[in-house]
């Protein structure tokens, strides 16, 4: 008995040392890739700088842009567009998904229409947005919002449709209905699937940001991509890609942090 207890006590200790180990494990492949990159561009000299610049020159490009203030401007405007579009699209998705998920009448009336709009590949709206809204800030944010809307709408709608009817009936049996039933039983029950939808929507937002900025823009990471392509600045191009990866990961981690807090409270 004492040995089992000792083993049980030791197990959490091992688990505690794990996060640091996990970071090391997760960093292994990127470090290897950068090492390989350095090897083929530096010592082995297999590529010309216009084909594949060395890691150091990508870093230098970043420092150069940072010193001129351009890096901050590009990143700032891109993050602003993503956040605005995501908040707008996800907000409308939450509202409309809740409405259609809870009301059979609204569902019957609107779901076929929303379904038809969902069937249109979102980028097909681009020419129309260009003509109607123009591809200024409004047009870009609108395109990102369209990208963020559907994952959120679909997850909220289907989650509310599938809340355990036993729990809802129990809620009703104890005198809950309308808004009280919604906040007591239905909304907490859909927290986990809704967060999956939100994370998917955030990834979509970054996707649509790049699409919008590639099409027409004078600043932003997508602009940096297209401008670097036109000028043959592969170092800046790689820098933009790395920055997109880092920003996407940071925003997803932040949302994941909120998700864990929410799950602790509701799941």
């Amino acid at each position: 008995m004492t040995t089992t207890l000792a083993a049980q006590a030791a197990a959490p200790g091992r688990a505690k040392s794990l996060p640091g180990g996990r970071i090391l494990l997760g960093a292994a492949v990127p470090v290897f890739i950068i090492g390989l990159w350095w090897l083929v561009t530096g010592p082995l000299d297999l590529f010309t700088p216009t084909q594949l610049p060395a890691p150091q020159s990508v870093l230098d490009a970043g420092v150069g842009l940072f010193e001129g203030g351009a890096l901050f401007a590009h990143v700032g405007i891109s993050v602003q567009r993503v956040l605005l579009g995501f908040l707008f699209g996800a907000g409308v998705g939450l509202l409309l998904g809740s409405l259609l998920g809870l009301s059979r009448i609204a569902d019957g009336l609107l779901h076929p229409t929303v379904g038809a709009f969902r069937a249109v590949p979102s980028l097909a709206w681009v020419p129309l947005i260009l003509l109607w809204v123009g591809i200024g800030e409004d047009g870009k944010v609108l395109l990102i919002a369209i990208g963020a809307f559907f994952p959120v709408f679909t997850s909220v709608h289907s989650a509310l449709r599938h809340v355990d009817p036993h729990l809802v009936e129990a809620g009703r049996a104890f005198g809950y209905h309308g808004t009280r039933l919604l906040t007591t039983v239905q909304l907490p029950a859909v927290v986990p699937p809704v967060f999956s939808g939100l994370r998917l929507a955030l990834a979509q937002s970054w996707l649509f940001l790049v699409a919008a900025e590639l099409l027409a823009s004078s600043e932003g990471l997508g602009f940096l991509l297209i401008e670097s392509q036109n000028n043959g600045r592969v170092d800046r191009l790689l820098l933009a890609i790395v920055l997109l990866a880092i920003l996407g990961k940071i925003t997803d981690t932040l949302l994941g942090f909120i998700e864990r807090k929410a799950l602790k409270t509701w799941a």
Binding site: H166, L167, R172, A173, P188
Partner: peptide, 17 residues
């Protein structure tokens, strides 16, 4: 949903959160 009554279901039907 008569409030003079209360139901104990076959499943406990407790809210898991």
């Amino acid at each position: 949903y008569d409030e003079r009554t209360a139901v104990g279901f076959q499943e406990p039907r407790l809210l898991p959160w």
